[in-house]
């Protein structure tokens, strides 16, 4: 995966986007008629039919599909049922909050994983090492929303250290970023630890150690470089997963990102918003992949063709 050229990767992306569009259409079509969500509680059957016709929901599936593909190709994704406005800005305005939260989650994970991973490698097979693996696995084994609500009750309500929910300041980011970061930190810690240990047995490390270079220095100099590529791979996969996948965390903390938007769009069958959100996320995922590939080449010159 790390050897492909950016152009080839871009070309491969066209069929992927097509398949994504097909999957989205089929699923949203199968979920049925969204008209129920478009009318008030006391509307009559007559009102509903008028609305269905106005949105073109009474057309056969192939007409709807052709119109859908036509919209995609002309870059006109249509109108959000839920908001009654153009769907594209509805999705785009969520991106800053989503990027902030994704970055926050990744930074928390790195800040936790880097020192604990190094520490665990230095004190390998000791009690502290064992304790660290136990705690990190625990972080991964707990359901996300449970962790989130517990954090709110402890740090928000009981200790009153940070705001409970919402967005707008750095303090608001802390709890949701912690919720997202702890799960990923577990995997990253383990990866850093094992990458460091792997390097320990190498000849040049033994040579260095024999020369009297302190172990911490060796670890930082050589071990981290060894951990960099797998850590990068793992981080980029997680970044992709977080972009639209923090649905639960965003709901718990009422964080106004793509995740909450997408949950609501799915519930209300807001076709246009689901389409664009999935496309935007797919394109961001591609960008992350391309960036990761470029970073590989920077880090390891052997990968340059």
């Amino acid at each position: 995966m790390s050897g492909r050229s950016p152009l080839k990767a871009l070309l491969q992306f066209v069929p992927v986007l097509y398949i994504v569009s097909l999957i989205v259409f089929v699923l949203v079509y199968l979920t049925g008629d969204p008209s129920a969500l478009l009318i008030p509680e006391d509307a009559s059957e007559e009102d509903r039919l008028v609305l269905v016709a106005a949105w073109g929901l009474d057309r056969p599936w192939y007409v709807q599909y052709l119109r859908y593909m036509g919209n995609i190709l002309t870059g006109d994704f249509g109108v959000s049922y839920r908001y009654g406005t153009d769907a594209l800005p509805v999705v785009l305005e969520r991106i800053p909050a989503t990027l902030t939260l994704t970055a926050g989650g990744l930074i928390v994970a790195i800040l936790i994983a880097l020192p604990t991973g190094i520490f665990a490698a230095l004190k390998r097979n000791s009690m502290p090492d064992f304790a660290i693996s136990a705690v990190t696995i625990l972080g991964k084994a707990m359901p996300n929303f449970w962790v989130g609500i517990m954090l709110i009750l402890v740090f928000g309500v009981w200790l009153r250290l940070v705001p409970v929910s919402g967005s707008g300041s750095f303090a608001h980011l802390i709890l949701p970023a912690l919720t997202l970061g702890t799960g990923f930190a577990a995997e990253l810690t383990k990866l850093i630890r094992s990458s460091l240990l792997e390097i320990m047995g190498q000849d040049y490390i033994r040579t260095a150690r024999a020369k009297g270079v302190p172990e911490i220095f060796i670890i930082l100099r050589h071990g981290l470089r060894n951990a960099l590529i797998p850590a990068l791979t793992m981080t980029s996969l997680h970044a992709i997963a977080l972009l639209g996948g923090a649905l639960v965390t965003e709901t718990v903390f009422s964080w106004p990102g793509l995740g909450q938007l997408v949950v609501q769009a799915v519930y209300t069958k807001d076709m246009a918003v689901i389409q664009i959100a999935v496309f935007v996320i797919t394109i961001m995922a591609l960008t992350i992949n391309l960036t990761t590939d470029a970073l590989y080449r920077l880090i390891d010159p052997r990968l340059r063709h």
Binding site: Q12, V16, I23, L27, V28, I240, A241
Partner: peptide, 19 residues
């Protein structure tokens, strides 16, 4: 598979669950 990886898992599950 690439397409599946590009759609966030929870989002995909949610839409399938709706169906």
């Amino acid at each position: 598979i690439d397409a599946m990886l590009a759609i966030p898992t929870m989002l995909f599950m949610l839409v399938v669950a709706l169906v």
